[in-house]
Design a protein around this nucleic acid. Structure first.
Lengths: 109, 109
DNA sequence: ACGGACGTGTAGAGAACCGATACGTCTCGC
DNA sequence: GCGAGACGTATCGGTTCTCTACACGTCCGT
C-alpha cells in the first residue's frame, strides 16, 4: 500500500517560517499551527516533526531551550538563529522556483 | 553538504502528465522534456527516472514497448494506461491541494 | 579517433517519512 | 475519584525515494 507523504520535503521550510513569525514555540504548538493554518490539509506526525527539529538544531538553524510553563508543564521551545534566517530565505526562494517550474511543465506538457 | 532533491515527490506527476500529452516517449526524451520545459530548473537524473518508470510500470500506470527507431537505435517507449490516467488526475489535484496549503501557511505564519 | 549526445539500466548509500509506541502531566466532565 | 482526551517529548523499525556513480552500447560530427 503506497503511502504518500503530505509535505514532500517542505517541512523544514514550514517550521522555519513559523518560527520566524512566532518565536519560542514548542514542537506540539508548531504541529498544531501547521495543521490549523493549512485547514487540516497538512498533517505533521510527531515521528516526522521531532526528528526534523533535532536535525535543524544540529544544523544550527534553530536553538532550543527548556522552559516551564505557568501550568508547571515543561516544554522545549525553539528560536531561529541567524543561520536559520538565511536558510529560510534560501528555502523560500527554492520553493518558489521549484513549484513554478513544476507548474510550468504541467501547463506546457 | 546538505543535498536537496529538486522534484520532491512530484516526479511521478510530471512523467504522467508528459506522457498524457506526448504518447510513446522514451525515458531519455522524458528526461530532456522536463529539463527543457522547466528551463533547466528541474533536472532528472537517470538514476531517478528509470527506477521511477519501472515502478510506475509495475503499478500499472504506464505500459512499455520496445521500438526500433529509423536510426536503428532501440528505445523503450511508454504510454499511459487507464489506471495511469486516473492516477494522473489524483496526483494533479493532490499537487494543487498541497502547494496551495503550503503557500497559505507561508502567508499566514 | 575521440568526445559528446543518445539510450537503458543497476548498485550502493543516504535521507526522510510514517506508524506505532513509550512515558508522563494537566483539565474537564461525570 | 476516575477516566478520557488534550498536551508534550521522544525513539525505533520499516519503507520509500533519491542521488551519485557506474556499466554497457550506438551514432554523429570533427
Amino acid at each position: 500500500m503506497p503511502r504518500r507523504d503530505s509535505l514532500q520535503g517542505s517541512l523544514d521550510l514550514l517550521v522555519l517560517k513559523i518560527l520566524s513569525r512566532r518565536p519560542r514555540l514548542h514542537g506540539y504548538a508548531i504541529m498544531t499551527a501547521i495543521q490549523q493554518m493549512s485547514e487540516d490539509v497538512l498533517r505533521v506526525e510527531e515521528g516526522s516533526l521531532y526528528p526534523a527539529l533535532h536535525r535543524m538544531e544540529e544544523a544550527g538553524w534553530i536553538r532550543a531551550a527548556w522552559i516551564t510553563k505557568d501550568t508547571g508543564r515543561r516544554a522545549r521551545v525553539y528560536d531561529l538563529t541567524a543561520s536559520g534566517r538565511k536558510q529560510l530565505a534560501t528555502e523560500e526562494s527554492r520553493w518558489q522556483a521549484v513549484t513554478s517550474a513544476v507548474n510550468q511543465v504541467l501547463r506546457m506538457a
